[in-house]
Nucleic acid binder design. Structure first.
Lengths: 152, 152
DNA sequence: TGGAAGTATCTTAGTAACTAAGATACTTGC
DNA sequence: GCAAGTATCTTAGTTACTAAGATACTTCCA
């Protein structure tokens, strides 16, 4: 098959995967009774550790007012907690309550298993390639997202 | 490296990629002055061709009332048009105006180029693997999304 | 053939999550 | 010690959604 043609098909597939994945995330968030932005905030807190409201503002590309509401709602559900920063009392550090999170239903269990099953059929070399590809993809996408945000 | 450990890292990376990609999509939609759901509707119309409002309702997992608003806004921007189905006059078929779309700014140009550059460094075998992987991923994700939607 | 049931879309009222602007509380630098 | 800067929260308004139901058309069956 022609290489240019393959690249074209890959771009389309990649776009379809992105749309489908975003819709899954929204459905998963809804199944927890959370909004998509609250879910993203949780994801960022889990991945990058406890951080201030300001850091979440920048990571989520929303206003500080929105973050106040997001953290309020997560606190009300007992999924995160706010704590004053002893070094700078203007700051508020948000921390995920891992025990509470573990105790809640896991909407990701099904898809996680399905992907583990898919990966099981891959060779070590293929897994290695996929890891390198995803790392590059995250880097590119984060950079291009920042480019689209005038305030960034 | 241990295989179980690699699978664990891959799952985390995959989640990070999904979150980042969703945020890019939202930023791209906003740069067109569109909402994320309008963008998804356009994407579905482009990928699967002209279809009825009802089909969009099912594909987007939103209510029929929401689709009315989404199509209204896209029509107002001149990006799509409504047409009566001659065979069933209850139906309204929505079609993308490709010329209008091509004439608008392309927020995807930058990321598209970045990925083409990434792909340029891949072998034919790697591209082939990626295509098979994405195809499987779209299939799994669509199935798992449907599972999370009670109305589906 | 005509009426009941079903289907497709749109309308309306209400809700939730966002933005923009500005208030409050604290910190830093001169 | 005061002015300017920073971090978060508050308030008012907007937007895109849902739920419920109205309208218009189609299908099925006695």
């Amino acid at each position: 098959m022609d290489r240019a043609e393959r690249l074209e098909r890959l771009a389309l597939l990649s776009e379809a995967d992105a749309t489908q994945t975003a819709m899954f995330q929204q459905a998963a968030a809804a199944s927890y009774g959370l909004g998509i932005t609250e879910m993203r905030a949780l994801s960022i807190l889990l991945r990058n550790g406890p951080q201030t409201a300001g850091a979440l503002t920048r990571a989520l590309h929303v206003t500080s007012g929105a973050v106040t509401g997001i953290v309020d709602r997560l606190v009300r559900r007992g999924l995160v907690s706010r704590a004053a920063d002893p070094d700078d009392r203007r700051k508020v550090v948000v921390t995920v309550d891992l025990a509470a999170l573990a105790a809640s239903e896991n909407a990701y269990a099904g898809i996680g298993e399905a992907f583990q099953e898919l990966y099981a059929g891959y060779t070590d070399a293929e897994l290695d390639f996929l890891e390198r590809h995803l790392t590059a993809s995250v880097e590119i996408t984060a950079r291009e997202t920042a480019r689209l945000h005038p305030r960034a």
